[in-house]
Design a protein around this nucleic acid. Structure first.
Lengths: 144, 144
DNA sequence: GTGAATGCAAAACCTTTGCAACTGG
DNA sequence: CCAGTTGCAAAGGTTTTGCATTCAC
């Protein structure tokens, strides 16, 4: 069985041998420029306008590396292509079934993200991934 | 943009034209027989021992159809192959990074699954998907 | 200088699909 | 009977990989 790599805390940012190449810089800039949740190919489309020679494979590599380093987060909703997100604070994702937008939901203060669930005593929690599907306020309003 | 199909409540089980074929029966039986979280190909491996002529594509079709009907749930963790689950009560999933097992976490009573997150006023919530990664009690114990 | 990263194309992987044959109600 | 389902093989779309070239440190 192929296990996940153990989750690396995103603060601390242990970059190790991380080399800041031009490509990585552009990919990172693109992610920071617009805090929506682009897929790898959307990131590619945006980077290619800034650096026409970059390849899709490199974008994938950069996103993977940055995910490992904790610079960005990979967001997976169902089987859809992964999206990437530069918001490093703990948060959930809201997926609007009408407009397809993904927005971040902050954690309420003083609350643990696991607090709704019965965790067996003795579990160690490393990471919580919460996705909420529904209809966003804007789409709810425009529906009638 | 290709949207999700709207989420269908799993109670009520509107089966519509659903035809209980031998293949679907076997797939369903296999899922009920062991409430772990097999992937499509694990389901295939198990069904094939009971019905050697079944094809992998049919297993995928059956799982898809049953997911639509609300008979089973599709569980997606990261980019790993989808797993399937016959537990229809609202629950979260715990993924153990040591042993790779996926277990169900019940919702605490009197609590909403969204309660940790700041939902914008006016959002409609249809469905919550929560995945918790960590180390299960058994693996935590055996580590030292 | 040297190991790491890139770019390209090809492969890998999970999943879906087209279609003729079959079957459940 | 006949729409819905199967099985097969082939295609689909996303992501990864092998390898020669280039580059950051």
């Amino acid at each position: 069985m192929k296990h996940q790599k153990p989750y690396e805390p995103s603060h601390g940012l242990e970059l190790g041998d991380f080399r800041m190449t031009k490509q990585r810089q552009v990919v990172y800039d693109v992610l920071m420029a617009k805090l929506d949740h682009p897929t790898a190919s959307e990131v590619y489309s945006r980077t290619v306008t800034l650096m026409p020679t970059i390849s899709l494979a490199t974008v994938y590599n950069c996103l993977e590396t940055m995910t490992q380093c904790g610079l960005v987060k990979q967001v997976n909703l169902d089987r859809a292509p992964s999206r990437y997100c530069a918001n490093l604070k703990e948060h959930a994702h809201f997926y609007c079934e009408e407009c397809g937008e993904v927005t971040d939901l902050e954690l309420k203060s003083g609350v643990k993200s696991t607090n709704a669930w019965k965790l067996p005593r003795g579990s160690r929690v490393d990471h919580v991934e919460a996705a909420i599907k529904g209809v966003c306020p804007a789409c709810t309003r425009s529906k009638n």
